[in-house]
Nucleic acid binder design. Structure first.
Length: 262
DNA sequence: ATGGCTAACATGGTTAGA
């Protein structure tokens, strides 16, 4: 089973890319972030025509998340329960499992950017992460087979940053942000990318400016995290840089994780 | 050098992203 995550930076603009990518990469599940469109603009028919189901949480202009999947999901949850937030950053659903895995809990997450260390948005980011951690602790007790895919807006370590010295202490890499992401790892969730040998300088986001993609001046902030029982069955995790080189690309690349479910 | 692109909303210039 293959699951992918992709921050598309406007599904309105990027739908052709998403459909082309899905045709070349017929994953079982695709989690999207930054739809930047209200619920009634979600292009459900385009996915249905290609054999997919979908659930989504949209918002005008900003944020917005979706889960595209072969099988229809149940138990759909929008946002973090009990955490009042007009920003649409979380959608979760339960998919039918395969073999001894009776069901799979899938979460698509768009974690706050934080803008600048010490800003109001930075405080919101850390607060949001604390709420996410607490909710995930509950979710993991309910769902032993859980995977949370998305844009975490945190580069876990210096090896995930093209120029760690230039970025030191900055947004996406500051110690409190890394501690917030670590608090998810401390729940038993694994960064599946690091389960395997990877090329050095592997990134998932590159600034639109200053030819950052051409120079591979990026950071790795999009991750697939899996619960222990799924981590044991994870067989690969790769970043697909291909669509980042297309015309009018998203600034993020998709990340794909594979699991052997029998 | 606090710029540099891109998208949304708007229809000029601001806000936000990371």
């Amino acid at each position: 089973m293959k699951l992918a995550t992709w921050n598309v930076n406007s599904l309105n603009v990027r739908l052709p890319h998403v459909l082309n990518w899905l045709e070349a990469n017929p994953v079982d599940v695709l989690c999207l972030q930054e739809l930047k469109q209200p619920d009634d603009k979600f292009p459900l028919d385009a996915f249905i025509e290609r054999g997919y189901q979908a659930c989504w949480a949209g918002q005008k202009t900003y944020n917005g998340v979706a889960i595209i999947s072969r099988q229809a999901g149940t138990d759909i949850q929008r946002n973090i329960p009990g955490y009042e937030d007009p920003q649409q950053r979380i959608i979760a659903t339960t998919l039918p499992g395969i073999g001894s895995v009776d069901e799979l809990r899938v979460i698509s997450a768009y974690c706050p950017n934080g803008q600048a260390v010490g800003s109001d948005k930075y405080a919101y980011k850390l607060d949001w992460y604390a709420a996410l951690r607490d909710w995930l602790a509950t979710e993991l007790r309910r769902h032993p087979h859980l995977v949370i895919l998305g844009d975490y807006n945190v580069a876990p370590a210096d090896e995930d940053v093209h120029d760690p010295q230039a970025w030191e202490g900055d947004i996406l890499v500051s110690a409190p942000e890394r501690a917030a992401l670590q608090s998810l790892f401390d729940l038993g969730l694994a960064d599946t990318f690091r389960l395997f040998d990877q090329a050095p300088q592997s990134f998932s986001w590159w600034d639109y400016r200053r030819f950052a993609f051409r120079r591979n001046a990026g950071v790795r902030i999009d991750h697939v995290l899996s619960s222990p029982q799924l981590t044991a069955r994870c067989t690969a995790c790769v970043i697909d840089k291909t669509p980042r080189a297309w015309e009018k690309p998203s600034d993020h690349a998709p990340v794909i994780a594979s699991f052997e479910l029998t």
